[in-house]
């Protein structure tokens, strides 16, 4: 069996952002469901949190290829 350990490392490092994205959108959905008028306040916060978490996942992806 051959392959590169980088991809295993990327798989492990993607767990964190995956959980983070799930928690961010879960909180956003339940917030909007409880109080629909709060949507315009919650939306930028949710998207910025999503962007920060996703940046880490993409860092892992890029580093798995270049290292």
């Amino acid at each position: 069996m051959t392959g590169t350990l980088n991809l295993v490392g990327y798989g492990l490092s993607a767990i964190g952002p995956a959980i983070a994205t799930g928690m961010i959108f879960a909180a956003y959905i339940s917030g909007v469901a409880r109080q629909p008028e709060a949507r315009s306040v919650l939306q930028p916060i949710a998207f910025l949190g999503f962007a920060l978490a996703e940046a880490l996942a993409l860092f892992g992806l890029v580093l798995a290829f270049v290292l």
């Binding site: 939306q43 930028p44 998207f47 910025l48 962007a51 920060l52 940046a55 993409l58 860092f59």
Partner: peptide, 13 residues
């Protein structure tokens, strides 16, 4: 990554 997050903030934040 910083520039992209800045752009996301400009567009959605």
């Amino acid at each position: 990554a910083g520039a992209a997050i800045y752009l996301v903030w400009l567009r959605f934040g």
